[in-house]
């Protein structure tokens, strides 16, 4: 379980997160939503120790990751798979080698075992035929899917998704959403999805955390989201529906 306790973070004197607390339960898919620049990605990066809070702490399975050595932190991080906003594929490597990288680095697998595992991961994201291509030869959706294959290569317990559908067309977004849902079911992982795409939220999330103006404004499950009378939350969801032209039933 990941537990964020009262964290605050500022950059150059500008507060990005203030006193934010959140619990991410084992096996659930939690969506962190909010406007651009509201601190969603910053919160996600705290969960894996890529950023250190100015105040508060982050516990991963009861371990305060701000108080352990760098070596121990790296061990904790190996339980995570992360899909970054732009994919963050290593552009000096082919798609195959990108997926193979964590396997070769952290396991003693033979080259045949690496190959089998990479092909299995690429197959999971329906991209078994792009192995030899470089990231520059792939489309935005393909990059995200290869990055997803890399994120699950070591069968992590937690998968963090940073804006998995941003910049993608609706069809590719649906494909990515289905993949996230499918992976959560198949691999039984805890998923944390940072997004402002409500269609994505409604199709994959069990629970939703809404950050507004640097603070955790609202947390609840999808049913509670539908029933919520919170004006700020409703305004955010409505604006999103207007943008995607696809109103959710509860707000129509």
């Amino acid at each position: 379980m990941i537990c964020v306790e009262n964290i605050s973070k500022s950059f150059n004197g500008r507060a990005v997160l203030r006193d934010v607390s959140l619990e991410m339960q084992e096996g659930e898919t939690l969506a962190i939503i909010g406007r651009s620049g509201s601190g969603k990605s910053v919160l996600m990066k705290h969960a894996i120790g890529l950023l250190q809070p100015d105040k508060g702490r982050v516990l991963v399975d009861g371990i305060d990751i701000g108080r352990i050595s760098y070596r121990e932190l790296r061990t904790v991080r190996r339980q995570f798979g992360v899909l970054f906003q732009g994919g963050a594929l290593f552009d000096s490597m082919s798609a195959f080698d990108n997926v193979a990288f964590p396997i070769r680095t952290f396991t003693d697998s033979t080259e045949q075992q690496v190959r089998d595992r990479v092909l299995r991961c690429l197959d999971l994201v329906n991209l078994s035929d792009v192995g030899t291509k470089r990231p520059s030869e792939l489309s935005g959706g393909m990059i995200k899917r290869v990055a997803l294959a890399r994120a699950v290569a070591l069968e992590p317990r937690y998968i963090l998704y940073d804006e998995p559908t941003s910049g993608l067309d609706p069809h590719t977004s649906t494909t990515i959403n289905n993949l996230i849902k499918g992976l959560a079911d198949q691999l039984d992982v805890t998923s944390i999805v940072v997004t402002h795409d409500m269609r994505s939220v409604l199709s994959i999330a069990h629970r939703v955390a809404f950050i507004h103006r640097t603070r955790m404004h609202w947390v609840g499950d999808i049913d509670a989201l539908h029933r919520s009378e919170d004006r700020t939350l409703r305004a955010f969801v409505k604006a999103n529906e207007y943008a995607i032209g696809h109103p959710a039933q509860a707000y129509s």
Binding site: R77, A88, D91, L160
Partner: peptide, 18 residues
């Protein structure tokens, strides 16, 4: 620098690599 701004360095760190 390019690896930094495209989050490739973050990706290495997130994997648990130094």
């Amino acid at each position: 620098g390019t690896m930094r701004v495209t989050e490739q360095i973050d990706a290495l760190e997130a994997m648990g690599l130094n």
